[in-house]
Simulated assay, not measured.
Amino acid sequence: MIPCVCVLLLAYAALHDVVGRTIPNGVPASLAALGCLRAALAHTIAPSLWIATMIFLAATLAWRKGLLGGGDVKLLAAISLVVTPHEVPVLLISISMVGGMLAILYVFAGKVLPQPQPVRPRHLVRRAIRAELWRVHRRGPLPYAVAIALGTMTQIVGH
């Protein structure tokens, strides 16, 4: 049950990040609560909280340098609670690999995708696609919640 809810929350965070480059605070809060429940049931709450705190501090430093968004910082710390402490290194590697692929995709997309049309479409999905094309062509920030979500999903679904 917990993994399914986590996957849905991660999908929502990724979609929200693509459309608006924000992650609602309720998503990391819900993931953290589910992660704490999982850790309590597995009797690993102390090491899980310690690891999540260290990840939060490291990610905060990345945020201060402009490398991550604030929502990404909270999401990274929260998802570190969703997996067991010994799975966190693999989780971080998985997220990094997906993030690298996402960056390559965005660089490639900027070279092959057309410029966005000046007319703003009425349909929400078309407006979101237009906004993303605009970000790609102007080398805007990546929606890193996508990398966090996909990297975490591979870890969760793999078990």
Rank of each mutant, 00 (worst) to 15 (best):
Gly71Val: 05
Gly20Phe: 04
Leu10Pro: 05
Ser96Ile: 14
Ala40Thr: 11
Trp63His: 15
His86Ser: 14
Gly20Asn: 11
Tyr106Cys: 07
Pro24Cys: 08
Ser80Gln: 01
Leu92Trp: 13
Leu61Met: 14
Val7Phe: 04
Thr152Ser: 15
Gly71Leu: 06
Trp63Lys: 15
Ile55Thr: 14
Cys36Asp: 02
His159Gly: 10
Trp50Gln: 12
Met153Asp: 07
Leu105Cys: 09
Arg21Gln: 15
Ile23Val: 09
Ala32Ile: 03
Met1Ala: 13
Pro28Leu: 04
Leu68His: 09
Pro3His: 04
Gly71Cys: 06
Ala52Tyr: 06
Ala46Cys: 08
Ile148Cys: 05
Asn25Tyr: 07
Ala78Tyr: 02
Phe108Val: 06
Tyr106Gln: 09
Ala77Lys: 13
Ser94Asn: 14
Tyr144Lys: 02
Gly99Cys: 01
Tyr144Ala: 04
Pro24Ile: 05
Gly140His: 05
Ile51Trp: 09
Lys65Tyr: 14
Leu124His: 14
Gly26Ile: 06
Ala147Gly: 10
Ile55Cys: 14
Ala11Met: 08
Ala40Gly: 14
Ala52Arg: 07
Thr154His: 10
Val90Met: 12
Met54Cys: 12
Leu68Glu: 12
Leu76Glu: 11
Lys111His: 01
Phe56Leu: 05
Ile55Glu: 06
Pro3Met: 07
Pro89Ile: 08
Gly71Arg: 03
Ala62Ile: 04
Ser94Trp: 09
Arg21Cys: 08
Asn25Ile: 06
Trp134Gln: 00
Ile51Glu: 03
Ala58Ile: 13
Gly70Cys: 02
Gly151Arg: 04
Val5Ser: 10
Pro143Asn: 04
Val112Gly: 00
Ala128Phe: 06
Tyr12Met: 13
Leu15Ser: 11
Pro24Met: 06
Leu142Met: 10
Val5His: 03
Thr154Leu: 15
Pro143Thr: 02
Asn25Pro: 06
Val136Ser: 00
Ala128Met: 04
Leu75Phe: 01
Val112Tyr: 01
Leu41Arg: 12
Gly110Gln: 00
Gly140Arg: 05
Met54Asp: 05
Ile45Gly: 06
Met97Ile: 11
Val18Ile: 15
Gly26Glu: 02
Asp72Gln: 03
Ile156Tyr: 11
Val112Glu: 00
Val146Leu: 12
